[in-house]
């Protein structure tokens, strides 16, 4: 495929076009991802998550400076939720990432969750793969930490940074929501506001309770608008990466990820296949009618539908 060759040749427009095709679930999607797969696996993925407005995009902008200073190229995927009612979205993360808008070593892509229930969509993971194949050394993924996306980001990122702020006691709340388990690094951003020390102390106290593991997540105060604490954050990211690499954990989590992806892919194929077969054999409409009238039940009806399919022997 022409676009794939162009992407591998470093063409930014081809990369952008391919992300769109993948995001739209184009019929060519699997072919695209399949042919690029051998070129993936080199990028290091860093997730940045936290409450809306906690300063994630500003942090990304500052981190880019550190990373570019270290001679590394970076891809950024900034994810925002689509409206569940209209399906539309305003993707505004670029507003705070303008310092690197013209840097050829940085590629920023905004994307909506497109109905993946607040979670990281499959498209996000696939976009990461495209940026990886394109040759980016690092990939930053910004997601709003509400519900499922927090959990999803850990499955996707090598290092997960959780951004808290001293305001509104949201640190305490997020700790309750179980964010403790997913953070490799905590940032207390907006450290220019009162309450920073209290918030940091709270997080540390929670970490004291957690007696496991050889990596203790550092708690880094930062003022992303002024660039304070960013050096320390970048340092922590590098230390965490080093820890993962030296302990063999990185290999492990990447295998876990592949295992999940493989399982998911099989389930996806089965699902598609089954519905294709069932669709051509009969309409569900009449069955639904009968079930609604309680002449039938969905349990036996489902089994009956499946019984019509002759599963191909692989």
């Amino acid at each position: 495929m022409q676009l794939v060759t162009e992407l591998l040749g470093g063409n930014r427009r081809a990369l952008a076009r391919l992300i769109t095709l993948v995001e739209n679930g184009d019929p060519l999607k699997n072919e695209i991802l399949q042919s690029l797969y051998p070129h993936t696996g080199k990028a290091y993925v860093i997730g940045i998550t936290g409450a809306p407005g906690s300063g994630k995009s500003s942090l990304v902008d500052r981190l880019l400076q550190e990373m570019r200073g270290a001679g590394l190229t970076v891809g950024v995927v900034a994810v925002d939720p689509n409206s569940p009612f209209t399906g539309g979205a305003i993707l505004g993360d670029r507003i705070r990432m303008q310092d690197h808008a013209l840097d050829r070593g940085v590629f920023i892509r905004s994307m909506g969750t497109r109905g993946s229930l607040g979670g990281l969509s499959r498209a996000t993971r696939e976009t990461i793969q495209l940026l990886d194949a394109f040759g980016k050394d690092l990939i930053l993924v910004e997601t709003v930490g509400v519900g499922q996306s927090e959990v999803d980001i850990v499955k996707t990122a090598d290092t997960t940074v959780v951004v808290l702020t001293p305001a509104g006691g949201d640190s305490v709340q997020t700790l309750k929501a179980g964010i403790m388990e997913i953070a490799d690094i905590f940032v207390i951003n907006k450290a220019d506001l009162p309450g920073t020390e209290r918030a940091a102390a709270e997080v540390s106290a929670m970490l004291d309770l957690k007696s496991c593991c050889d990596w203790r997540p550092p708690v880094v105060p930062a003022v992303s608008t002024r660039g304070e604490g960013i050096g320390a954050l970048w340092q922590s990211v590098q230390e965490h990466r080093e820890y993962l690499e030296k302990s063999g954990r990185l290999l492990e989590i990447r295998k876990e990820r592949i295992s999940r992806e493989l399982t998911e892919q099989v389930e996806h194929l089965v699902k598609t296949m089954v519905w294709e077969k069932i669709k051509v054999r009969m309409t569900l409409g009449s069955l639904v009618e009968e079930i609604a009238l309680r002449r039938r039940d969905p349990y036996s009806a489902a089994r009956e539908l499946l019984a019509q399919i002759e599963f191909p022997v692989p």
Partner: peptide, 24 residues
């Protein structure tokens, strides 16, 4: 129902064109 990429104030022409490219 559209996805709007909003880039904020004071964009240079280069920034606009580059955002259009990256965001496809």
């Amino acid at each position: 129902g559209m996805e709007v990429i909003y880039t904020g104030l004071h964009q240079t022409p280069e920034q606009v064109a580059e955002a259009a490219l990256q965001e496809d």
